[in-house]
Amino acid sequence: MGDGDSKGRSAGPGIDAIRRYDHAILSARDIETGYGDLQVLFGVDLDVRSDEIVLVFGPNGAGKSTLMRALVGTLPLWAGTVEMNGDDLSGLEANEMVPRGIGYVPQTENVFPNLTVDENLDIGTIHAADPEARREAMFDLFPRLADRRDQEAATLSGGERQMLAMARALMPDPEVLLIDEPSAGLAPQLIERTFEYVDRVRESGTAVLMVEQNVKAALAVADRGYVLDVGENRFEGDADTLRDAERVRDLYLGK
């Protein structure tokens, strides 16, 4: 099943095997990291291929946000590697990830509160090849933002702020967008909208790695997913497989 090379550590196909993909754009291998003496990740593997939406889910405190921070270099790796298109990214500063094609939207505090909508996007132009075209593309994707160009980000609603955070990260036209719980704290109608946006981001040619707690809604747009628990991958599989797998459902999706 799946079209990846099955090189997982557990034998055989299915959700228990963590498949590794040879032609991924973003690849993490055996990542370990943590905070001070506290180890949070214990050898995580993860791949994102072009045109994919990949979901990471799991219980609170599993280390999902920590994994994102490790991938973008805000947390130093204790062990393992992160590669982008075959280039080793370990040891690079977080600010050097953007020119390598990685966009990142943190779970919280993901806009510059003291900057206007336009100025937040200006920050995104630093590594953008064609800033004005990108700005127009963002306003096409999020028309709400165009109406609020001169408003300070601190005064935006939660949904608008999330749009701005995505737009800022998308300004440089990244190859892969990492986004941590985009639907957190949003009203039900907005949650669906958020995943529509994620889908459109993928359609525009940017792969997406998304952490989400609204797993059912997220699996509707995702291609594949990983279940992270206590700092380790428990399962990996295609969206359909994960949705239907009894063990995943029992442990992580609720009935």
Partner: peptide, 24 residues
């Protein structure tokens, strides 16, 4: 100026400035 905006961004949220590609 871009320098001024990056100064304000760094002031508003340094870690976000860093992941947004600013050499803080």
């Amino acid at each position: 100026t871009m320098l001024g905006k990056t100064m304000r961004a760094t002031s508003g949220n340094r870690s976000l400035a860093e992941v947004a590609g600013i050499d803080t």
